[in-house]
Amino acid sequence: MRRLLVIVVVVFLSGCYNAPDPGGAASGGPGALAGAPAQSFDVRRTDGRPDSLARYRGRVVLLNLWATWCPPCREEMPALERFARENAGKVVVLGVDQGEAAAVAAAYARERGVTFPILVDEQQQYGRTYEGIGLPTSVVVGRDGRIVKGIDGAMTIDQMRAAVAPALTR
C-alpha cells in the first residue's frame, strides 16, 4: 500500500512539472508607456545644434515622431504647428524625425513653415524607446519627466489639446 502511495505521489509530481514556454517579444505600443520615465537621447537639431528631450525637463513636452515620407505625418504637421504657436510658453512641441538625414528634414520643415524644433534621430532611438508601432507617434511628457500619455497615429488639434491637458494641470 505504501509503495502504491509513493508511485501515485511520484506520478503526480511528474505531472505538475513545468513545461517549457517559448516566450517572445512583447510590445504594448506607445499607449502602454504612461507613468514610465521618459528616456532621452542626445541628438542634433536640423540646424546642427545638439539637443535632447532631457533639456526640456520641468516643462510639458509634446514629442512627435515623424518622417517626411509618412503621409499621415504630413497631414498632421499643420495642426502640430498651429498647436505649437497656440501653446507657446506652456507646451514645448518637439518634432523628432526618424531615421532621415538632417538636410531632408530641414528642407521639409522650411517648406512647410514649421517653427518648432526638429530633432534628427538617425538611429531611431526615440522611435524604438517609445515603441512606435507606426508613424506619427506622439508622447506627452509631464514636468516631472514622466510620460503622461502615448498616442499612436495622427491627431487633430483638438486631440492635441485634450492630450496635453492632464499634464498642464499637474
Partner: peptide, 23 residues
Amino acid sequence: GLAAGLLGPDTAQVIGTPGTVTP
C-alpha cells in the same frame, strides 16, 4: 531539483528591442 521544476518559472526567453522595457 524537483522543487525547482515544480515551483520555479517556466523556461522562457524574453526578446526585447534595444532601448525598450519589457515586463
